[in-house]
Measured scan of single mutants.
Amino acid sequence: MFYPNSPQTSPQLTQIPYGQQYAMMQRQIQQPYHPFATTEPQARLYPYHYQGPIQQEQGGFITQQSTAASPQYVQMRVTPVDQSIMSGYPNQTANGSSSSSFNYNIHPQQQQQQQQQQQQLRHHAMPVGSVPLQDDRYRKQLIVNYLAPDVTSTDLHELFSRFGELDGARIIYDKQTNMSKGYGFVYFCHAEDAKEAVERMSGYEFHGKWLKVGYSTNPLNIVPSNSSPYVHAGSRGAAG
């Protein structure tokens, strides 16, 4: 039997160049792979992502010199942007860049009308829970959420009447099932009393439920100042 490094198959040491006398086997001759043993700084910083320098080929596509990437890492192929796409944008300079302001050559009167329309939209648009300043009635009506099913309009009136005089209180019921929808409205005579009720009743436990109280901004629920107070009856038909 002959071994790869046996004296019968191995040459004389004098015939082997210096430095390879003890590297006779194939696994010894093959050098191990060192990912950080390279002179390129990109490979030292990113050993798993770097795959060699990027070269520009004919046709405008950018390719990489090395083989496919590892399945664990996804390499994105980048193509140059066609400058003709950006030619339609206004205020574009000769080098292809555009300024931040756009001039669509709008007539001054049209621009003024658009600004007025935007101001009107901001004036009428009102986020949930906010209180408008032009109508004091919005500051007097509250919406009470997360009410228990057994709470009546009379219970709601008695709960909030300790903060001040009320114009009314009612629970909203479903017309088909005649069941409470879980929320109601309270109408105060003074805005200061309503503000105190919002601050003190939010998070209050009532009939096993934690109440959420806020201003009601729905104009359909506003009680006119010259109208008669609501009837605080315990029956659902009268309260709904």
Rank of each mutant, 00 (worst) to 15 (best):
E40D: 12
Y33I: 09
V198Q: 09
T217G: 01
F185L: 01
S87A: 07
Q64M: 05
Y204H: 10
F185P: 01
Q65H: 09
D193W: 02
S98I: 11
P17D: 05
Q141P: 01
G59H: 05
V74P: 15
I171P: 02
E196D: 10
Q30Y: 13
P11N: 05
M24S: 14
Q65S: 10
S10E: 07
R200C: 10
G214I: 00
I62L: 11
I29E: 14
Q51M: 07
Q8E: 05
S228A: 06
P149H: 14
Q30S: 11
L13M: 12
M25W: 05
Q56A: 09
S6W: 05
Y183R: 01
H124Q: 09
P41S: 08
P224L: 04
Q114P: 07
Q58G: 12
S216H: 02
K181E: 02
S202M: 11
I62C: 11
Q26I: 02
F206R: 01
L166Q: 00
P71I: 02
A233W: 15
N178E: 13
Q30C: 05
L133K: 14
G168S: 00
N91S: 09
T39I: 05
E165A: 13
S216M: 01
P35H: 13
Q176N: 15
G129A: 07
P4I: 02
S70P: 03
P4R: 13
N145Y: 00
S225K: 13
N218Y: 01
V81C: 09
I85G: 08
C189L: 05
G60N: 12
S202C: 15
R77E: 03
T79F: 03
Q55A: 09
N103F: 12
G184T: 00
H232A: 07
P71E: 08
P224Y: 08
S225H: 11
S180I: 01
G129L: 03
R137V: 03
L220D: 00
V151T: 05
Q12A: 08
N95G: 12
L220K: 03
S216V: 01
Q119Y: 10
D135F: 05
S202L: 15
Q42R: 14
S153K: 15
T152Y: 05
S98N: 07
H190T: 13
S216A: 01
V144W: 01
Q110F: 12
Q134M: 14
L220P: 00
Q176D: 03
Q28G: 12
G96D: 13
R27M: 01
E40L: 12
P229M: 09
D136R: 06
N95F: 06
Q20I: 03
E205H: 14
A194G: 02
D135C: 07
N178I: 14
V78D: 10
A239S: 11
D135K: 04
R137N: 03
G184R: 01
R122E: 03
Q15W: 02
S228R: 05
G52H: 13
V78W: 05
M76E: 12
F188P: 00
R27T: 03
P17L: 03
Q58A: 05
P90M: 12
N95C: 13
A233G: 08
R77T: 03
R200D: 03
P53V: 09
Q134T: 09
V198M: 09
D135P: 04
H207V: 01
N5F: 04
L211P: 02
Q116D: 07
P149F: 15
Q30V: 06
Q42V: 07
Q115A: 09
D82G: 11
Q117V: 06
R162L: 14
S97M: 13
V186H: 01
G96K: 14
P80I: 02
K175E: 02
L133M: 11
Q55S: 08
G240K: 05
D193S: 08
F188I: 02
P80D: 08
P41F: 04
H123P: 06
F36M: 07
R162Q: 06
P219E: 00
G168C: 00
A169W: 03
K181W: 01
Q8M: 05
A194M: 00
G88H: 08
T9Q: 14
T217A: 03
P17H: 06
T93I: 10
G52W: 04
L159R: 01
P219T: 03
Q55D: 06
R139S: 07
S228Q: 09
Q134K: 13
Q20N: 14
S225V: 14
V231S: 06
I171G: 00
R139G: 05
F206M: 08
C189N: 09
T152E: 04
L121C: 06
P35Q: 10
F163R: 00
P71T: 11
E196W: 15
P127L: 06
L147S: 01
D136I: 06
Q56G: 11
G237Q: 12
I62S: 13
I106D: 03
R44S: 04
Q116R: 10
P71A: 05
E199M: 15
Q109L: 09
E199P: 07
Y173R: 07
S180N: 04
G168N: 00
A148S: 07
A94G: 09
G240P: 05
P32D: 10
R122P: 04
H190N: 12
L142S: 00
L133G: 08
R122S: 04
N103T: 10
N91R: 13
Q64Y: 03
V74A: 15
